[in-house]
């Protein structure tokens, strides 16, 4: 079993901010737009270093998305920054028409996604954004798992031509992926090799999946653990290869089970290789106030929930 170590807890949003700082230095076409959340999105460095390429749009997300779409016409690569809720649900039609349908090279960067936003409660804890974004034709959907991966993804998406939704979060979480990783859009990352069950996780649930795999290993259950940072396009080959080997799957995400990673995996398996699946996700509900840990526990989004789901799914094989 591979050993993964937390090099020190860091927030994924800082990975975005530091990635943007690096991009600012190396790519003069990169511009950043923010809707009054510069500090929360960790965009201060970019703003300080490149004031002429930083656009404070105020609390006006619809205009921000439209402006970003317009900037691409002049060859710019706009990165928009606000909370995930205001990056998607609030501006869905603007993204749909001005960005996705128009095929514009806009990077929609969304922090504070999911329950781990914490105390602000359900108004801000969007659990539907992956579904909203993955339904848009041509939209790439990425949900990174830690600081290093978020930084690498931020840098990588600038080189990709087309609309991207990059989802990350607020709290400090384990930082365990390599600092020098080569982030490839659409390419799953195999974290553990096993033959009894496939655990497919995205975002903050990837670390939980690794913890679950260790617990399972102690009980003699060998889990294949796959980090799906790109939910669309989905790495069909990696998933099929694993499930053909293990015969069952648990998907894990900080998102509603409707519209999320789990559904994408279910669609793939039902058409290509039917297999029992359990979903670690919120169960068609809104969130609420609480600490991130309390919320993940209450809504069943942690390592122990994954272990229980693995036991259920293996029994169904």
């Amino acid at each position: 079993m591979k050993k993964y170590t937390d090099s020190g807890k860091k927030d994924t949003r800082s990975g975005f901010g530091d990635g943007l700082t690096e991009l600012g230095k190396k790519n003069k076409d990169v511009v950043a737009l923010c809707a009054d959340l510069t500090g929360s999105l960790k965009m201060d460095d970019f703003k300080k270093n490149h004031p002429e390429r930083f656009f404070q749009v105020g609390i006006a997300e619809a205009n921000m998305i439209g402006m970003a779409a317009g900037m691409t016409i002049g060859g710019k690569i706009p990165f928009t920054g606000t909370f995930a809720n205001f990056s998607t649900g609030r501006v869905y039609d603007q993204i749909r028409q001005s960005v996705a349908y128009s095929g514009k090279n806009v990077k929609i960067c969304a922090s504070h996604a999911g329950l781990t936003l914490g105390e602000d409660g359900a108004t801000h804890q969007i659990l539907e954004d992956i579904g909203l974004m993955k339904m848009l034709p041509g939209m790439t959907v990425i949900n990174t798992c830690d600081y290093n991966q978020t930084k690498a993804a931020t840098i990588a998406i600038a080189d990709y031509e087309g609309p991207v939704y990059l989802r990350f979060g607020r709290p400090k979480v384990a930082n365990f992926t390599p600092e020098d990783q080569n982030f490839q859009i659409g390419k799953a990352v195999q974290l553990q090799e096993g033959t009894d069950v496939t655990i497919i996780a995205t975002g903050h649930l990837v670390w939980e999946a690794l913890q679950a795999a260790e617990t399972l290993n102690e009980k003699g259950i060998k889990a294949d653990v796959i980090n799906i940072h790109t939910i669309k396009p989905l790495d069909d080959d990696a998933i099929l290869k694993s499930v053909k080997k293990t015969g069952c799957v648990v998907t894990a995400e900080e998102h509603n089970f409707l519209g999320g990673l789990g559904e994408s995996v279910a669609r793939l398996l039902s058409t290509q290789h039917p297999a029992p699946q359990e979903f670690i996700a919120t169960q068609d509900t809104f969130g609420e106030s609480g600490t991130p840990e309390q919320l993940m526990e209450k809504y069943g989004l942690n390592a122990s929930a994954i272990v229980n789901a693995v036991n259920r799914v293996i029994a169904r094989k």
């Binding site: 390429r53 439209g66 402006m67 317009g70 002049g74 710019k76 603007q94 749909r96 001005s98």
Partner: peptide
């Protein structure tokens, strides 16, 4: 045609973005 339109209210934003890009360029 440089952007889709039809769902109303989005054109001025796009035009502002394009205008800012012109300034940068």
């Amino acid at each position: 045609v440089r952007i889709a339109s039809g769902s109303l209210g989005q054109g001025i934003s796009a035009a502002i973005g394009a205008a800012l890009a012109k300034k940068l360029n």
